[in-house]
């Protein structure tokens, strides 16, 4: 028994799912990169330290 060739519609659905997946993965990487930059920048302070400084 041979498999049927993939319907064009399924290719389109796969492309759509792949697009959404890659977009979400890119978003995660972006948020991670942004967090690293913010945390390692010189003016970053943890909230407790900031509150202690203000008191």
């Amino acid at each position: 028994m041979s498999f049927k060739p993939q319907h064009e519609l399924h290719q389109r659905r796969f492309g759509r799912n792949m697009g959404v997946g890659l977009s979400l993965a890119a978003f995660v990487v972006l948020v991670l990169a942004m967090t690293i930059v913010k945390v390692t920048s010189g003016d970053f302070k943890f909230p407790q330290a900031q509150a202690a400084e203000q008191n």
Binding site: H7, L9, R12, R13, G15, R16, M18, V20
Partner: peptide
């Protein structure tokens, strides 16, 4: 479930 004119990722973009 099959719609021939179903949108691709490019259509949403």
């Amino acid at each position: 479930t099959l719609r021939e004119d179903e949108a691709s990722f490019g259509d949403y973009f």
